[in-house]
Design a protein around this nucleic acid. Structure first.
Lengths: 210, 210
DNA sequence: CTGGTAATCTAATCATGATTAGATTATTTT
DNA sequence: AAAATAATCTAATCATGATTAGATTACCAG
């Protein structure tokens, strides 16, 4: 086989997208470096030029995912809209974020475990750098949850929402959202926006003061 | 090494419990037959006396899980309680079912994918029997969802619940539930019952007629 | 007891898949 | 266009883990 004139040399972005895609289909452990490489017309070995190893690659996918979502949610969270409107916007951003890129969405839901699992992540493990990034990722995820708690809390304090157990309410909300990434199909009855609307209706109704 | 007088020969039940446990910790692909075997003081090879192969074992875990949950939910679903009370009981049963056995719960959430994945399940695959059981499992899971839809539908028709998009509402509800299996910790602030109560409050409030 | 079946074990087999080594080719920079 | 660097490749290496083969031991029915 002659050397492929390399359509155009591949960059990390491309690889991340491809990886998210394969990851969604097969899950971390079932996904081989070869699978990912194939998606971008490379050989497994070539991937090592771009990423230290498989763990680092998965991590990069998740990092890109959470940063993207946070970049959508944070501006809303810090805005000065009233809590109810703010919450609706945040729900909308999160849900459509998941439906627009189901690959990354599903990866975020299913593969975080690989990040925490003792087996995949012997904390003291080899890569100290990867260990650090892992920590940072978890921190970002927690921050994400805190943004939602804050809006709910604010709404309750202002008497716009009925009092609820905030941590549990937020877990409920986020669980519902994450699940969307699991069942959503682009060819389904509703698109991301429509699903988001209905979910926002549900949760805002649940918060209606008595 | 002398032959271990075998405390007592192990049965499938034991293996399923152990497997669910390991599965929860590591996920299907990361879980080795050896890991599971170790939990019950057997060697990997011995497991093959009880289960055809690794896939069949995973499937058995999931089957046991869904049958258990269905056995809790179905009686409530067919009872003649009013829809609101019925829904509360069903939520309670589902959530505590998940918190009481987080191992199976997490497996049900995370590993169903392995069941559907092309890679793990080349539909035409080897075991025709396993293929059939796989189909049956999916059917059971769908039935489970239908039970929830029916209660909501009934409540709406009787004017006890405000009209909602039933399929989406149920996905929302089940997503929230499933997620509990992911974050719940036995040593957390609330126990399964308390969490279930709060979640039921939330969803029933969301269904309150205007 | 005695044969038969069940449950285990130890020791292969066999395949897969991450990672590394050592070129080779492409692209920039100067 | 020579040197340096980046991006790929092919061909090992190496480890892991599912599954099978061939005993061995435990227990039950007659």
């Amino acid at each position: 086989m002659a050397r492929k004139p390399a359509d155009q040399s591949v960059n990390k972005e491309d690889i991340l997208l491809a990886a998210a895609d394969v990851l969604q289909r097969n899950g971390y452990e079932s996904t081989t470096m070869k699978d990912i490489a194939a998606e971008v017309n490379l050989t497994a070995a070539s991937l090592y030029h771009h990423f230290r190893n498989k763990d680092a690659l998965l991590l990069a996918v998740l990092e890109a995912g959470i940063e993207h979502i946070l970049s959508q949610i944070e501006p809303i969270a810090v805005s000065s809209y009233p809590p109810d409107h703010k919450l609706r916007l945040m729900i909308h951003a999160h849900v459509t974020g998941l439906t627009n890129n189901t690959a990354v969405g599903a990866a975020m839901v299913f593969e975080i475990k690989s990040l925490v699992s003792v087996k995949t992540a012997p904390d003291d493990g080899r890569d100290p750098e990867v260990a650090e990034r892992r920590r940072a990722f978890i921190a970002r995820r927690d921050q994400f949850e805190r943004l939602f708690r804050a809006v709910i809390q604010e709404g309750i304090e202002r008497g716009l929402f009925c009092p609820v157990d905030v941590p549990i309410f937020v877990k409920t909300l986020l669980g519902a959202h994450n699940w969307v990434g699991v069942w959503y199909r682009p060819d389904g009855r509703l698109n991301g926006d429509e699903i988001a609307d209905r979910m926002a209706d549900t949760f805002l109704r649940a918060l209606q003061p008595a």
